[in-house]
């Protein structure tokens, strides 16, 4: 996993040094070319070796999905700010965590905090619960299930 990433970076730098143009588009092209070459070279090895080549497109899709989600939540909050009445129903709920290590919890917390309307207030001492403040709380079970399906499961299958 890490080995292929470093090899890919090395190929990128070789490409940039050979062509001599210091652009972001050139970096991107070098990365894609290196990715393709490594993919072709390892096509006969076992599935565990090839993990990296499935993970990069998945990370890209996840980033896109995250920005789409963030835009949608921003528009909802914007509508609420501009219209005269408050129709928010805020509340703090307890959210059972599936993520185990510190890094996974940090990434999940950052993603929750960056979508407008939700915010992490505290973490339980044994790292098994998050306390989340949310602005649109209609139904507790539904909110928890929604967050788990839409964000946490995808993040964990990307990181593990």
């Amino acid at each position: 996993m890490l080995k292929y990433f470093l090899l890919n970076l090395l190929l990128t730098f070789v490409w940039v040094a050979l062509t001599g143009q210091l652009n972001y588009s050139n970096f991107l092209f070098g990365y894609l070319a290196g990715f393709f070459i490594l993919w072709m070279l390892t096509r006969h090895s076992n599935l565990k070796e090839k993990q990296y080549f499935y993970r990069v497109p998945k990370a890209l899709v996840f980033t896109m999905y995250f920005f789409y989600d963030m835009m949608e939540a921003n528009l909802r909050v914007a509508k609420d700010v501009i219209t005269p009445n408050y129709n928010t129903t805020p509340g703090i709920i307890k959210y059972p965590l599936d993520a185990k290590t510190d890094f996974e919890i940090t990434m999940l917390t950052n993603i929750i905090a960056l979508t407008p309307g939700t915010m992490v207030m505290d973490i339980a001492d044994d790292k098994s619960y998050l306390y989340i403040h949310t602005m649109y709380l209609r139904n507790k079970q539904k909110f928890i299930r929604n967050l788990k399906d839409r964000t946490e499961t995808k993040l964990l299958e990307l990181l593990r």
């Binding site: 408050y86 129903t89 805020p90 509340g91 917390t109 915010m119 992490v120 207030m121 505290d122 709380l137």
Partner: peptide, 23 residues
């Protein structure tokens, strides 16, 4: 995260119309 936690510890109240507070 830091400022929200500090605000809760120092006792700033939630809005009256909040539904639930499990913290």
């Amino acid at each position: 995260f830091l400022i929200a936690r500090t605000a809760y510890i120092t006792g700033i109240k939630l809005w009256d119309k909040s539904i639930v507070d499990e913290l």
